[in-house]
Design a protein around this nucleic acid. Structure first.
Lengths: 311, 311
DNA sequence: ACTCCCACATAGAGTGGGCTTATGAGCGCG
DNA sequence: CGCGCTCATAAGCCCACTCTATGTGGGAGT
């Protein structure tokens, strides 16, 4: 074997080889909480040897001892405590995923039918659904995502009980309550010239520069077009927020995204925010329902959750 | 089979059965970014049929069509775009996990040796490490977590190049720079009587109430004891932040935690924050290094990252 | 119109990780 | 001193994921 054995480049990916599976992380959290492999195994519905083996293989994979075994139980090592907290973040994200995915399976018999715009469905709804499930565990929720017009349509056709929109105006026939505000942010990779500017960006500069954008018709795009006077120039048009972020991170150019979409990327400096002068890139997020039909039952529960937690 | 077939209670867990594995989520993100199953497969180093089958089985598991296949490529469905964004959050958490775990494998030959307090290592460091890797991909980092005394010791013994502490004072022999501030927050489950209070909590009430706490000697505990005058009464003492959170969520009682630890729990209202009057529960987070030895090389890179992103 | 290339799907075989049951060993407590 | 708990080990099963090899369909270029 000479050096000719080609290393695969692996620019991204391979995470799954280095990060334990969700089941293993869940098990680790249970061990931390219950102080015993056996009890954790019972809680997850597997046998004690399975738990033992799984923790051991996780330790092998990470190259770090995670738990101190003793005949009186198991406690986390120092490294184990760290790993457990990092695992907790993954599991929380997985819970949000689960809550959302469950609502996507359009069950006809759902007790609460929600229609929401993309941004809200992506970033806020999963958390609300988790909270709702904590209060009313047996409420089945179905979710339909679409733009403002679609949301209004479904509400008026009695195909949804509660809607959420992010437009600049409220569709006719609907009552609404503002639940939060969302700002659009201009971002670039840290290496981009804009990242080193001292003066804020002018609206004219922004309008003159080709940007990485969602496709025409998306809520984000509408707000941006309105703010700039209808002329955002696309460098690329992509079909999902994820794709826009990935493209911006890789340095393809400046992008405009909701602040809700940019938690991790900004704090880890994969992207940096560029201040913008004299442009109103803010919009209200609203809950909506047919005029006169004040939400009741599960819809009311969800509504009160969103108002309480709305920033 | 009568109704005697006992449903397993599954109060927590079972997530792994409903959420696809990390490898599948990574694959989905690659498909979204590249617009083709085959290209995504190539990027992840698997074959096209494997990717095809894996996406299909994920769709079966979720009960939702995620991608529209066509002879010209694959695009996400509406539901697929939502699912992809939720998946992105999981993968981001997994990247932080990976960055941290990699630093935990105490490699002797690391170019940058970091010693950090628990809270910083848990919640801030992984993000910094990701950002550092983006700038300097070949910098191997090792991490050792411990309290302020341990951090100081390792720095002075030249076993670490850069330290992070969260104490109230800077250990002697070290220079420091404040990189962020951290507040401690009193939280309860939403059902707790305190959640319905109108007046802020008084320090004496807090001191008189048994609390869910980290064990004595933890940075969090020290700050709380100092603020209350040395007399926080423990209801339970637990060994990890995760365990404290879980216990508080389940309604065991009030807990005191760093705001850094409470992202998801507060916004999903699994926990609510209780205002506190006339108690200073704030502390500075500092980078530290031996007097005279201003950080250079990788240490300087990391330091400048943390200062830039510190709140 | 024919061909080439890319897209994705299907079929059948191999492998490995995780699960189970069964059993053994260390510590503490009555 | 034995019973309870703890965790570890061993042997066998099974399924998910993987591969190679092949088939089908559409767009682009000649």
């Amino acid at each position: 074997m000479s050096a000719a054995e080609q290393e695969f480049p692996e620019p991204t990916g391979g995470l799954a080889r280095r990060v334990p599976e969700l089941g293993a992380l869940e098990l680790l959290l249970a061990v931390a909480r219950l102080g015993s492999l056996g009890r954790a195994a019972r809680e997850l519905g597997i046998t004690q040897p399975a738990a033992s083996s799984r923790i051991r293989s996780m330790e092998r994979q990470l190259g770090v001892a995670l738990v101190d075994r003793s005949p009186t139980g198991s406690r986390l090592t120092d490294a184990g405590a760290l790993v457990t907290d990092w695992a907790q973040r993954i599991v929380e994200a997985a819970e949000a995923f689960d809550a959302g995915a469950q609502a996507l399976r359009d069950r006809r018999d759902s007790r609460l039918r929600v229609a929401a715009s993309m941004t809200i469905a992506e970033y806020l709804l999963p958390g609300w659904l988790i909270a709702l499930r904590a209060q009313r565990p047996d409420t089945a929720v179905s979710l339909h995502a679409g733009n403002s017009a679609v949301v209004a349509e479904r509400l008026l056709a009695d195909e949804a009980d509660l809607g959420f929109v992010e437009g600049l105006s409220v569709p006719t026939g609907l009552d609404s309550a503002v639940i939060a505000h969302d700002r659009l942010i201009v971002v670039t990779a840290p290496g981009h010239p804009w990242a080193r500017r001292r003066r804020p960006l002018e609206a004219t500069e922004l309008a003159a520069t080709p940007l990485i954008l969602r496709e025409k018709g998306s809520g984000t795009r509408q707000v941006l077009d309105a703010a700039l006077g209808g002329l955002a120039r696309p460098l690329i048009e992509l079909s999902s927020t994820t794709a826009v972020k990935a493209s911006a991170v890789s340095g393809a150019g400046p992008a405009v995204l909701s602040e809700l979409a940019l938690g991790e990327e900004l704090s880890a400096r994969r992207l940096v925010s560029i201040p913008v002068a004299d442009v109103r890139l803010s919009r209200a997020l609203r809950a909506v329902w047919p005029v006169g039909h004040r939400p009741t039952g599960p819809a009311r529960d969800l509504l009160s959750l969103t108002v309480a937690s709305g920033g």
